[in-house]
Design a protein around this nucleic acid. Sequence first.
DNA 1: AAATCTGGCGAAAAGGTTTTCAGGTTTGCA
DNA 2: TGCAAACCTGAAAACCTTTTCGCCAGATTT
Lengths: 343, 343
Amino acid sequence: MSTEPEIPLNRAATLTDVAKLAGVSVATASKAINGRDDVRATTRQRVLEAAELLSFAPNALARGLLGGRTGTVGLLTSDLEGRFSIPILMGAEDAFGAGQVSVFLCDARGDSIRERYHVRALLSRRVDGLIVVGSRTDPRPPLAGPIPVPVVYVYAPSANPDDISITVDNVGGGRLAVEHLLACGRRNVAHITGEAGYQAARDRADGARAALADAGRTMLGGKPYFGSWDETWGRAATHIVVEAHPEVDAIFCGSDQIARGVLETLRDLGRDVPGSISVTGFDNWEAVAAHSRPRLTSIDMNLEHLGAAAGRRLFAAIDGGERSTSDQYPGRLVVRDSTAPVS
Amino acid sequence: MSTEPEIPLNRAATLTDVAKLAGVSVATASKAINGRDDVRATTRQRVLEAAELLSFAPNALARGLLGGRTGTVGLLTSDLEGRFSIPILMGAEDAFGAGQVSVFLCDARGDSIRERYHVRALLSRRVDGLIVVGSRTDPRPPLAGPIPVPVVYVYAPSANPDDISITVDNVGGGRLAVEHLLACGRRNVAHITGEAGYQAARDRADGARAALADAGRTMLGGKPYFGSWDETWGRAATHIVVEAHPEVDAIFCGSDQIARGVLETLRDLGRDVPGSISVTGFDNWEAVAAHSRPRLTSIDMNLEHLGAAAGRRLFAAIDGGERSTSDQYPGRLVVRDSTAPVS
DNA sequence: AAATCTGGCGAAAAGGTTTTCAGGTTTGCA
DNA sequence: TGCAAACCTGAAAACCTTTTCGCCAGATTT
């Protein structure tokens, strides 16, 4: 109390400082601060005041060193640029933030050398677990080397089925879109989508085909129009489709950007959307879908939920032998103005 | 050598394990691994082999606890959703990754309570420094409370001029765009931009006005058309501008999305871009600018460079009394097909 | 008044690494 | 062979917190 009390330290305050100021031992100070119950109420009060005064924050390094748990996880992305990683990352960050866990962000830039380097660094920091975020839904090789902590793969599943992978149900997404078009009374559905090399493109097409088959119909042209994921392809493909199948009354697009090109070209061709033809996108990319003319009906893959689910799953795996199964999450139809019942 | 050597530990290998396996003391093992030169070459070799065998990674917690330096920094964003944070974040991550520094990512979601909470957590993890990424260029209040480590504000400067802030030169950006339009031989330049409440909007307008004044001209309509940052406003404003000033031969847009709406409406109105009227965007948002019709000339703010610069500046501040001045970074003109000399 | 109990507090060890300092061994030279 | 010098190596401390265990005083019981 009287030992020159209020000298602001030039270093961060330590528990010893707090204890000294409160006139107790470090052990007691620790117990008081951590809410252990074998300390008298008045003593606890005194310690807490001292801690407040010094704006004491326990050194997480020391705590981690001792306890074996650091309360940190590594978030390994293969590319931040792609807009798929970001919502996933936000969801995960959210799930962890609530649980007192801090997140190391590492961007491997799609380079496996860099990835290994980052994993090494993360392990040396003794993270409690790892989340690996892919940028495509194609399976990816599992992390190299022995990893002594739980790993959850999200969006892109691990090629090893024993690993925990959280993925998006693209087949279901394709089905959702086409079922909506059919429910609008559309009969002649074409599918314009991205590169056939993408698992996501093939899965969405499979879902679309299945939905059509259930209704006793087939895809216009017999198969999807594979191309690239951008507007340019959307425009080109629209010309092809309309020329070959003038009866087309619905187009299911593999991405919002493709859909955007489709909408533009249909307008140029004088086709009325959604009057004479309905169009759906995929991804529900707000900036594109909500500002096109007409505003675009799309499938939202709930990526933020996906990230949050990955976070929770990692928690479970860290906390103890939780079931380590993989999971697939469904998408959600967001209806805007580009689809409407046949009038 | 002969003491049952190859038992794979169920815990992470420690320096003691390595030393034991190599038959030396921990001190020697440490020196061998860290490249200190007072250890015999053969001994070093033996130690390194042992480390490799056990896939030893030094415990960064222990190292940080001892040295006072943890080799970690906190990256505090106010919203990840906005696409401005991401490139900045990538640039910073890049600058740090090269320097053996790991990054804690925290998203405050624009909430100051949450921000305080994150800062507290980061300080308790003894980060060596902080980068605060804003989502608007308006000055923001500095971090609350005493922060015992260097802080660099990026994109959004701190309201306290004594803090280190790395910002974008929006005035220069506006000037750049308009000078390009003038160089194309345009004379009647209108400016359609976002909300006047944004410093960025006002700065870009100021730059545009200055460039016009240098050429002895004024903005069409006398002032910018402030509105919102999206396509919808771009479309509406275009109608207004063309009606009021049919002689318009250039439109400088405050964002690529606005420009997109402008392009669409000009096409609807039968105005030829870039033949009879030139259009520039702002932000160089690849997904929008590179796929519009015609492809959009825009100003790129080099946000990735901005992030990298912030990272380097933070390094300097950590490593010792580097000059702690603020800096402004210029943008860069990216010419595509929406601007061309008067024909 | 003596014995027992209990609530409250402090001493000490552990966790893994780096660094300093002292001690030990080998080498070179006379 | 003897001595000094150069060269290696190892013991121990420091970093900060948590937890276990023991101790003391005061309260309760006999």
